[in-house]
Amino acid sequence: MKPLPVGEHGLLIELDTAEEVEALHAELLRRVAGGALPPPREIVPAARTVFLDGLDDPRGLLADIASWHIPPPTAADRPAIRIPVRYDGPDLADVAALWDVTPEEVVRLHSATEFHVAFCGFAPGFGYLTGLPEPLHVPRRDTPRTKVPVGSVALAGPYTGVYPRSSPGGWQLIGTTDTVLWDPRREPAALLAPGTRVRFVPQETTR
């Protein structure tokens, strides 16, 4: 663990693995909930870091955090959701070729994986989901699409994501969901928050 000062009130804590990020993020939320840590304005987990901003005493935390005992994350204390998916994406065949399996096997492998939201970004409600093993990581498309439809389920690098709204994007599209990922009038607005566990459930393709 390597904590780095960020401006006057921030800390960026660098970690070696995504699992350590998940564990530290859970520990920070526990400490805030338990009153041991005054709530920072922001707690932003990312690929290999957790960023804290709006800290009253960043130097104190910087000195202290390396001595924390951080238990490994347990799945039980995180919310779990199921997202129905039609595996009908235009890149399903390309992903099947990259994985060296049939499209049916892509569906089976992807829907058998337990994902978890490592972090959010890119757009409100867009979660970066990890869970696919390394051999199933795929590159982005050479040419990004100018318009990816809302609800597209997509792969890039180690991540699976669901586009919360129509936007440009370079990820490999393998399916579509009708589940609303982001609705600012809903509480919570974002279906996927860091730590949420996700299973994709295959649905009959209707088109």
Binding site: R41, E42, I43, V44, P45, F51, D53, G54, F119, C120, G121, F122, A123, P124, G125, F126, A189, A190, A193, P194
Partner: peptide, 9 residues
């Protein structure tokens, strides 16, 4: 709207 950066907001 501070406090929502972890959701990409």
């Amino acid at each position: 709207r501070p406090g929502h950066a972890h959701l990409g907001v």
